[in-house]
């Protein structure tokens, strides 16, 4: 974990409310794992005061030098508004990599494994990094992308570029399956083969994750979810980001014990 001043190499609008920022941060890029996040100080002054958490969307760079981290963010309020106006070449404070990421299957050699990535809205952000890691390990993956309408479908091309099969669900049916991505997951599970052991990796709004967790419990599939809680620090100091777990311990911290949890562990 490091607190660095990272130079903004790119900050582009990718669709109506979504932006992608590329940061030059070699120290972070080298140690980051899929599912981990960073805390970004969006403004320079006292308002907004707290940093904002963003998943590490991708690691990139030129050649074998992985020196950049990318974040994919949705314009929702004060912090992201300021972020969207940041100019290329300026620097921002980035703390990371934070938290525990997704647990990847060990190897695909002994028995067939496959992964189903389920994204809701901007929850797609960490799953692209995950898809790239899975591809490196030669683990077959399918991505299910949920969005409000066809205009807000994110990253379908990124998944395809890593060789991942993509299915899309939109709330209004303007592209792909009509309805929630959880409905799409049920449909996909009905039609896929059952030869490989599947793990479901999901990131998105809480109600969606709860539904996905329910489906996986029913089908006895391992399910890992990336949770969002309001955070003040992001590294276990404030105890603000508690997540209720089934264990008698009561609470775990989203920033330190998560943000990725085994869905079976959560008291939904």
């Amino acid at each position: 974990m490091k607190d660095v001043k990272a130079k903004i190499l790119e900050n582009e609008k990718i669709s109506a409310d979504y932006y992608k920022m590329t940061l030059d941060a070699p120290g972070l890029a080298r140690s980051a794992a899929p599912g981990q996040f960073v805390q970004v100080r969006c403004g320079d002054g006292l308002d907004p005061l707290l940093r904002r958490p963003f998943s590490i969307h991708r690691i990139s760079g030129t050649g074998d030098r992985l020196s950049c981290i990318e974040i994919l963010y949705e314009l929702v309020g004060k912090g992201t508004e300021i972020l969207s106006r940041k100019q290329k070449g300026t620097c921002i404070d980035v703390l990371g990599p934070l938290g525990n990421g997704f647990i990847l299957p060990l190897s695909a050699k002994r028995y067939p494994l496959s992964a189903i990535l389920v994204a809701g809205g901007v929850g797609v952000a960490p799953l692209v990094f995950l898809a790239e890691e899975l591809a490196r390990k030669k683990i077959k993956a399918v991505a299910l992308i949920g969005a409000r309408t066809k205009k807000s479908v994110l990253c379908d091309k990124d998944f395809k570029d890593t060789g991942v099969e993509v299915h899309i669900a939109t709330d209004d049916g303007s592209r792909g399956y009509k309805g929630f991505v959880s409905g799409l997951l049920q449909k996909v599970l009905r039609t896929t083969n059952h030869e490989s052991r599947k793990t479901v990796y999901a990131c998105g709004p809480q109600p969606m994750l709860k539904r996905i967790a329910g489906i996986c419990r029913e089908k006895r599939l391992e399910c890992q979810v990336s949770l969002e809680e309001e955070m003040a620090c992001g590294f276990g100091a404030c105890m603000g980001c508690a997540v209720k777990v089934k264990d008698q311990a009561g609470y775990k911290l989203a920033c330190k014990d998560g943000p990725v949890f085994n869905a079976a562990e959560i008291a939904w």
């Binding site: 005061l49 309001e230 003040a232 404030c238 603000g240 980001c241 209720k244 009561g250």
Partner: peptide, 10 residues
């Protein structure tokens, strides 16, 4: 155990 969530807000 502490209080229920959300526990912090800006």
């Amino acid at each position: 155990p502490g209080n229920p969530m959300p526990r912090v807000c800006e």
